[in-house]
Design a protein around this nucleic acid. Structure first.
Lengths: 194, 194
DNA sequence: TTAATTATTTAACAAATGTTAAATGATTTT
DNA sequence: AAAATCATTTAACATTTGTTAAATAATTAA
């Protein structure tokens, strides 16, 4: 496999399951590289999510419309997986939309090819399980932070963990991610200036 | 398998993967039934979580200590799986504690037996993946509700979805679960009386 | 059954966050 | 470069939730 472009995903995958060079080849033909310009849509509302993406470059947002307003539930960090999972797992129309916050390079695989990998090679199914376990743990961490932390602490931690994200992503999406309004985030940032 | 006691778990499992009678037998020897009295602990802080539980009867809470205070992150609904996942997956000491809110009957399996099932029968690994996917989706739903809904709406929805839970579980844990203080929940309940 | 403990409510005041509306700044398009 | 659009800040006021401290209610243990 082209080491240039696949370096990050291979590094990510090998955290969970050890694949040999030749096992990774099985993936090669199934993969499609997708380049998205800022604001382009990866998964559209009402569409059935049939692909999962690894963010090789750039930031995606996962959002939906709530009372006419766009609400960003997730900003995918660099080098992580994203899809509209409720739609992807049940193959029903997606209420979630995924689009590019910045120009993005995505490594994608579609549902049927992934199912093929899962069914043909138990190691891939294991990888799928482990990745989703990790995503679940992270999701639980976020729930803890909603329960116990103020917006200020959540913001400070995000700033510390993903300084680049704050730089590259409009504050509207950061505010949604933190569960507060843009104006409240702005006030909060002001109060942290000194 | 004793249909009496395993009825719920079999129903749960068969939502995800179709097992034949004889395939379920593989599970039988691996399972341990645990009866917990109210307030008894299933996973202790600092202990390595080596079991996962299906709640056949009763409610468990998943909590941890934050600034000396107990904070409940999760109340497990009836007939669902629970473990201190960060500890369970990485086999490191758990910061989370799991204990019984009410008397509980748990169907448990330990980590090494589960790994054995995963490795020996791909269908079990598939089941594990699907269950965790479902848990992740539910977790994301909760994040949406923290972002877009007021505590009042979160409470009303909980009341509607799990009326029994509100009846059987002290309000302190419900309040934690909703991300508000007990006193705020009490005030909120008062305001809903009319 | 009484005492002790645990759970829930109440209330006054404080702090955090939301709402509305507008101003300012930055970026993109013409 | 000017106009248009998008992003961020600001401010006044409203609402929600937290904090502290206590009273009351319900449950459990002696």
């Amino acid at each position: 496999m082209n080491p240039e472009i696949f370096e990050n995903i291979i590094k990510f995958i090998n955290q969970f399951v050890d694949f040999k060079e030749e096992e990774l080849i099985a993936l090669q033909n199934k993969i499609e590289i997708v380049q998205l310009k800022k604001n382009e849509i990866f998964i559209q509302e009402g569409e059935i999510a049939d692909r999962i993406a690894f963010t090789n470059k750039g930031y995606l947002k996962v959002y939906y419309y709530h009372e006419g307003e766009e609400i960003t539930r997730d900003i995918t960090p660099l080098h992580s997986f994203a899809t509209a999972l409720p739609s992807f797992v049940s193959q029903t129309p997606s209420f979630e939309i995924i689009s590019a916050i910045t120009d993005c390079e995505l490594i994608t695989i579609n549902k049927s090819d992934l199912e093929y990998l899962y069914s043909s090679f138990p190691k891939w199914e294991r990888l799928g399980r482990k990745i989703i376990e990790e995503m679940f743990v992270e999701s639980q961490r976020r729930i803890y932070s909603f329960i116990t932390e103020t917006a200020e602490i959540r913001y400070k931690k995000l700033l510390k963990q993903y300084p680049d994200m704050i730089r590259d992503v409009p504050l509207k999406y950061i505010a949604d991610f933190l569960g507060i309004k843009l104006q409240s985030l702005s006030r909060l940032r002001k109060s942290l200036e000194w």
